[in-house]
Design a protein around this nucleic acid. Structure first.
Length: 971
RNA sequence: GGGCCGGUAGCUCAGUUGGUUAGAGCGCACCCCUGAUAAGGGUGAGGUCGGAGGUUCAAAUCCUCCUCGGCCCA
């Protein structure tokens, strides 16, 4: 440390008049970098400069040949403006790619969009309705063209919005599921399923919307509270091993009266106990009823009838469910004959509970999953009585055909206590209760908000539990499996479920809990229903042998179809082209073209093929290192991609899956337009700038649900300003810095600089770990804390004197500036993936001619910078420093001293880490002087204040005169 | 209604296998500086760790129940 002992007395006595202002002799930070960011105004210009320089292309060139990191973008749906969820997701993706790029890898990003599907179709139909146009009168190709245009519009809108967020990617060349290439690939993938026999036509109750006349995926359904009619219906027992039951009435309870006309059986719980009751004087005269013992009171209350316990043989009072096997009832409408005259057997159902109802459940295989499975197992097939518009078919015996009471079965009036079903049942003496007062949640169509039903329809399925068939697939050149034809197929007869589950074990999940989540879903999920009865989507390009469920499996035919779709898109699947595709080997009249389209999840499940594997983007390779989406995609894209790839390629298309939670409003509740608590990322960008949203997204714990709101954004803004000013200070302090003439080797630097380099090395290590762990919240936290604590409040503050007042040629000042230069280069890179705009502004302010900061790689910091011995001494010193600050405070409060520079501090000898001189301590504590003594003490110094550096030192002859150091510097 | 996840200072987050007075940064209050200046520095006040039981010598940490919120499903 520089000694100040040689007091200079050369100057004469200074009077007030001769006191001069030394401000112009002080080397203050100099920069044009403004304190106020003005991000909303500034960002678009920076964005334009990147575009002009084609930064993305430059990066691909710069990283060509480097190790790859492939993040495959999950396609958002091309419908509506960007919302906060999109913003979060894309900032995270951008952060991943940029941090990997910082590490020197080649991390291309090709954005994509999901373009087919019902929601878009619905929007286009809505436009028709407004114009009073009937969709059915529009030629289907015209309709599809409008859907295509609609999707393209929103792709363009969202693309601009996402670019504005600062996300770097191949925006000029995104993938769309509706591009002809994509559509052809989806068809080709489907044909792989078909050729390998991993596709079957079956019937199954699926969620059906009578309004939209289509089957719905679970994602297209939402639940709302409604009130339904609940009824108790008596089924007369006509046959039973338990003699006393014959002639008694089994009672079922249901909230969907419309399913009674399609009843085919009754289910009981084998472990449930039932009781037989005698009733006299009721609507049925004297007769007995069978219900679950535990539910008898509720049953009595609902029906309001007086019951007496039966006087049958006590042996049969109470009947164990399993003893009901072999019992048969008849339908209340048995007098109609035909379907209604058939016996209604009692079947054991493990789904039967005594939570509600009567403990006996009426079964309609057409309209319930449990019903379907149980009846199927007992040889009862669905009858398809309900048509696609929700009405019973024309030839149906009860309430079908010309019955003018016929309505859609979901119509509340149809099911009402005074509606046709209840009336007929009442007339038949089978209705024990009916009231329109049962409140429960019920599935509704996501788009139309109309109620949906379960309805059995023919659909196409991918079996989950059938050993996967073999297919002679051509493996794309980019695929590591290339060369061997689907090797997994020959050695492995696992089912799709088994294969998917084993991949779930292998793949890395961040956070880890995602593994269990998708695992339990795949374990429990039913067969994949691929078909939709709609227009806007990729056709299921199968030829069905007429009168059968067999589809044509001919690779040559399929190749013709795929080629045509590649040229013309989905419109190529056209009845007029039938003979062309079938070729000479088949008689067109013997086949019908399947008119269903594919579930859009199949589209998205194929994105890995037409994006990573296709070669359309040379920078991409299959499989992906990472998929990164919201946690809802465990059921969605993560799963559809997994299943598609496992069936066709034997493995997941990704090695790791990163999920984020959902963004809640500031009250922790989910955002909804009705609550008015939504936060619009577009408005935040207008108001605060994209860097603020980015910093927000990267400083919350995105693995969980997290919040956004004014207070939070204000905090983010504060954090931003602090970082910005740290850069501003460095820019100012480094103005005109020239390493060639000024640089000092780190090994030659003072200990404080070496300590800071140690801290930087530690930070560097921590941030690299954060990148590897995708722990961005810790990344931004560590970065901010370093800037605040190590730099601003400690290093910069201590070194201010040196920077301002030391001789620019002195080794110490040069060492400090060299250290700042190192810090600058590190920090601007650390900040670059987070504050993409601000980092660029910082970079170009200092280096107007060195291109973009985003082309830079992280420097490898020398391991020697880590000096744990030195760090331990400084850690102790910083603790002592805190004690000193605390001790100075009372004097300040009592106005004895104003700044620490006026303080003379005595520190306990044993509290000082070894190797620090008194002068070092005074410098590090920013006090007048430090001496050692018994205990910590502070007093005001008697020394005079240097007119230039404002320190109070013995070498200053009088207040306002110069200290020795300043005298020398000015000499 | 079921499964899973979460609830630590005003805000954003740490809290390792249960173990001394529960931490950090920001914000806030007060003070200093006025040569990073709509900046910088200092000090301080903030928490019955969602609630209630339980296990233990000891619980933010383990168990049970409740509550609030979220995702998925019915």
């Amino acid at each position: 440390m520089r000694g100040c002992a040689k007091a200079s007395k050369r100057r004469g006595h200074m009077t007030d008049e001769t006191k001069r202002d030394y401000k112009d002799t002080v080397f203050l930070p100099k920069t044009d970098f403004p304190m106020k960011a003005g991000l909303p105004q500034k960002e678009p210009g920076i964005l334009a400069s990147w575009q002009d320089a084609s930064l993305y292309g430059q990066l691909r060139e710069a990283r060509d040949g480097a190790e790859k990191f492939i993040l495959h973008d999950g396609p958002p749906y091309a419908n509506g403006d960007m919302h906060i969820g999109h913003a979060l997701n894309h900032v995270l993706k951008d952060m991943v790619c940029r941090t990997q790029t910082l590490l020197g890898k080649d991390a291309p990003y090709v954005p994509g969009w999901d373009c087919h599907g019902l929601p878009i179709e619905w929007k286009v139909e809505e436009q028709y309705r407004k114009k009073k146009k009937n969709k059915d009168e529009v030629p289907i190709k015209e309709f599809r063209a409008e859907c295509r245009a609609y999707a393209q519009h929103w792709v363009d809108v969202q693309r601009e919005q996402l670019k504005r967020l600062g996300c770097l990617g191949d925006w000029d060349n995104p993938y769309l599921t509706m591009q002809y290439d994509s559509e052809a690939t989806i068809v080709a993938e489907l044909m792989k399923f078909a050729e390998a026999g991993n596709l079957y036509r079956g019937s199954k109750p699926v969620m059906w919307s009578p309004v939209e006349k289509t089957a719905l995926a679970e994602a297209e359904v939402e639940y709302e509270d409604i009130t339904s009619t609940q009824i108790d219906v008596a089924f007369e027992i006509v046959e039973s091993p338990i003699e006393e039951l014959v002639g008694a009435h089994a009672v079922i309870w249901t909230t969907t009266p419309w399913t009674i006309p399609v009843n085919q059986a009754l289910a009981y719980g084998a472990e449930v106990e039932y009781t037989l009751f005698m009733q006299s004087g009721g609507p049925l005269g004297s007769c007995s009823f069978l219900v679950a013992t535990d539910l008898q009171e509720e049953f009595k209350r609902r029906t309001g009838l007086g019951f007496e316990e039966s006087n049958f043989n006590p042996r049969t009072w109470q009947i164990k469910g399993s003893d009901l096997a072999g019992t048969v009832a008849r339908h209340p409408m048995h007098h109609l004959g035909g379907f209604y005259a058939k016996p209604r057997p009692f079947l054991p159902g493990d789904f039967v509970t005594t939570d509600s109802g009567t403990g006996l459940v009426h079964m309609s295989p057409d309209h319930g999953e449990d019903d379907f499975e149980l009846c199927k197992a007992n040889g009862l097939d669905p009858v398809f009585a309900v048509m696609d518009d929700g009405r019973y078919r024309d030839d149906w015996l009860w309430l079908g055909g010309d019955d003018d009471r016929r309505r859609a079965v979901i119509n509340p009036g149809f099911n009402a206590p005074d509606g046709p079903i209840c009336s007929d049942l009442r007339e038949a003496g089978a209705l024990l209760s009916a009231s329109a007062d049962y409140a429960h949640s019920y599935p509704h169509s996501w788009r139309s908000k109309a109620k949906v039903i379960y309805r059995c329809t023919p659909q196409w399925f991918v079996p989950m539990d059938k050993p996967l068939g073999t297919g002679d697939f051509e493996v794309a050149p980019g695929n590591p499996l290339a060369g061997a034809v689907a090797p997994f197929v020959s050695q492995d007869h696992s089912t799709l479920r088994e294969r998917a589950l084993s991949e779930i074990e292998r793949v890395r999940f961040v956070p880890e809990k995602g593994r269990r989540r998708i695992g339990s879903m795949v374990e429990g999920r039913p067969d994949w229903v691929l078909s939709r009865q709609r227009a806007w989507g990729v056709p299921i390009t199968l030829f069905l042998k007429k009168g059968t469920s067999d589809y044509l499996q001919d690779a040559a035919v399929n190749a013709r179809i795929v080629a045509a779709v590649r040229e013309e898109g989905v419109d190529a699947w056209d009845e007029a082209r039938k003979a062309e595709y079938l070729g000479s080997g088949y008689e067109p009249d013997e086949y019908e073209m399947v008119s269903d389209i594919l579930d859009v999840w199949f589209d998205s499940g194929c994105t890995h093929v037409f994006t990573l594997e296709s070669g359309r983007w040379p920078a991409l390779t299959w499989p992906a290192d990472l998929y990164l989406e919201g946690s809802d995609q465990h059921r969605g894209w993560f799963q559809s991609s997994l299943l598609e790839s496992c069936a066709t390629r034997g493995r997941a298309p990704y090695d790791a899956v990163l999920t984020h939670g959902f963004t809640m409003a500031s009250d922790g509740k989910k955002m909804s337009k009705s609550l008015g608590n939504t936060v619009d990322p577009l408005k935040i960008m207008e108001q605060y700038g994209a860097d603020i949203i980015r910093l927000w997204a990267l400083s919350v714990d995105f693995t969980e649900d997290h919040r956004i709101g004014d207070e939070i954004l204000k905090g983010v803004g504060d954090q931003y300003r602090k970082l910005r000013n740290t850069f501003r200070y460095m820019l100012g302090a480094l103005s005109d810095f020239d390493y060639e003439s000024e640089g000092v080797e780190p090994g030659q630097m003072p200990e404080l600089e070496r300590y800071i380099l140690h801290r930087l090395k530690r930070l560097d290590t921590a941030l690299r770990q954060c990148i590897a762990d995708y722990d961005f919240n810790e990344y931004t936290r560590a970065l901010s804390e370093f800037a605040n604590e190590d730099l601003s409040a400690f290093f910069f503050d201590i070194r201010k004197d040196r920077l301002y007042c030391d001789d620019p040629a002195s080794m110490e000042r040069r060492a400090y500036r060299t250290c700042l230069d190192i810090l600058f280069h590190a920090l601007v890179r650390y900040a670059a993936p987070v504050l993409v705009f601000t980092a660029e502004e910082v970079w170009t302010t200092r280096f107007p001619d060195r291109g973009s900061v985003h082309l830079q790689e992280l420097h490898q910091l020398p391991d020697e910078w880590q000096d744990d011995t030195l760090a331990a001494r400084f850690a102790d010193l910083r603790e002592l420093r805190e004690d000193v600050m605390e001790a100075i405070e009372p004097l300040r409060r009592e106005k004895i001293i104003r700044s620490g520079l006026e303080a003379e501090v005595t520190v306990p000898e044993d509290a000082v880490p070894q190797g620090f001189s008194d002068a070092d301590l005074a410098e590090l504590f920013i006090t007048a002087s430090v001496t050692r003594g018994q205990s910590l003490a502070v007093q005001k110094t008697d020394e005079n204040k240097c007119g230039r550096c404002w320190r109070l030192l013995p070498s200053v002859p009088e207040d306002g005169a110069l200290c020795g150091r300043c005298e020398d510097v000015l000499a």
